[in-house]
Design a protein around this nucleic acid. Structure first.
Length: 291
DNA sequence: CACTTGACCTGTCCGC
DNA sequence: TGCGGACAGGTCAAGT
């Protein structure tokens, strides 16, 4: 579930919490979750390295190191990057204090320790996510990133978005908006929310949509993701930010996980259907299927 | 070739 | 209450 707003929320936390700290140890508890690219030993690029910056591309997190290497992470569905300072208590109520005793837990896959006693936990219940160490110059060559479409919240992504959409005229719009090569960072939650806001049925073929309708879809996706970032992202199952805090956006979602409830725009009952293998939430009145 | 489906995992929830 | 099975969703490989 971590989509662009969730990864961006985590990134902002890491930028504040881990930049400037020096890595002293890395423990890999689940081999599958950690990789070194290329498979040479870059450990010397890790120990003693300082974290200089927390970046994001789409849903991919990039921690840049002082050695020129990068720690790159994809959280997939259940991944978390949680910072805990075990040597420092902030007082009751601070999120760090509840994590001091709770982590590591059984979903912890990799523990990155800093020389001041703080830790960054890569947790991932379902082991779909990954954390890779690679030369900074190799990040852009990761296939997912190399083929990735424009960032929705940087510059004016509209022209490139439209060009890339038109490469897939026979895709259903839900598949197209989820395609990271068309637009970076959109996942199931914001796809459904954006399609509802733009009043487009998810099974509509791209070829049936005008440039204006696609532009409205992009604007809708931008709006829901901006709003979500403001609320700290969406916590559907187990997403938490770098301090272990849950996101609040889903309380403001219009259709996602709201099947059986009235559409906030027209009052019709929201339905959950399957589109390209994905659970999909629609208002059957606002989003009319074109066959 | 372009698109769709299944696999990867584990925890949760539903129906019997 | 116990248990099997469906389901959750990001990406890539395999299938149509």
């Amino acid at each position: 579930m971590p989509e662009l707003p969730e990864v961006e929320t985590v990134r902002r936390g890491l930028q504040r919490l881990v930049v400037g700290r020096v890595i002293s140890r890395v423990e890999v508890l689940t081999q599958k979750s950690f990789g070194v690219v290329p498979p040479a030993d870059l450990t010397s690029d890790l120990l003693g390295a300082g974290v200089t910056q927390a970046d994001r591309r789409g849903k991919v997190m990039i921690l840049e190191l002082s050695t020129g290497a990068a720690l790159v992470a994809h959280l997939k569905m259940t991944g978390q990057l949680v910072f805990v300072d075990h040597d420092h208590r902030w007082g009751a109520g601070h999120p760090n204090d509840s994590l001091v005793d709770a982590l590591p837990d059984r979903s912890t896959r990799v523990i990155i320790s800093f020389d001041d006693g703080a830790h960054l936990y890569f947790n991932d219940q379902r082991k779909f996510g990954w954390l890779h160490l690679m030369p900074g110059s190799a990040v852009a060559a990761i296939p997912l990133i190399a083929s990735m479409g424009p960032e929705p919240l940087e510059g004016d992504p509209a022209p490139e978005f439209l060009r890339r959409m038109r490469r897939h005229p026979s895709l259903k719009i839900k598949a197209a908006i989820l395609n990271q090569a068309v637009l970076a960072g959109v996942g199931n939650i914001y796809a459904d929310e954006a399609l509802w806001a733009a009043k487009i049925h998810p099974r509509t073929l791209v070829s049936r949509l005008s440039d204006q309708e696609l532009a409205l879809l992009l604007e809708s996706a931008q709006a829901v993701m901006r709003t979500s970032i403001d609320y700290g992202g969406s916590t559907d199952r187990n997403y938490v930010d770098a301090e272990g805090k849950r996101g609040n956006y889903l309380s403001f979602a219009h259709v996602f996980r709201r099947e059986g409830q009235p559409c906030p725009r027209c009052g019709a009952i929201i339905e959950k259907i399957r589109v390209v293998g994905r659970g999909t939430h629609i208002c059957p009145n606002c989003q009319v299927e074109v066959v």
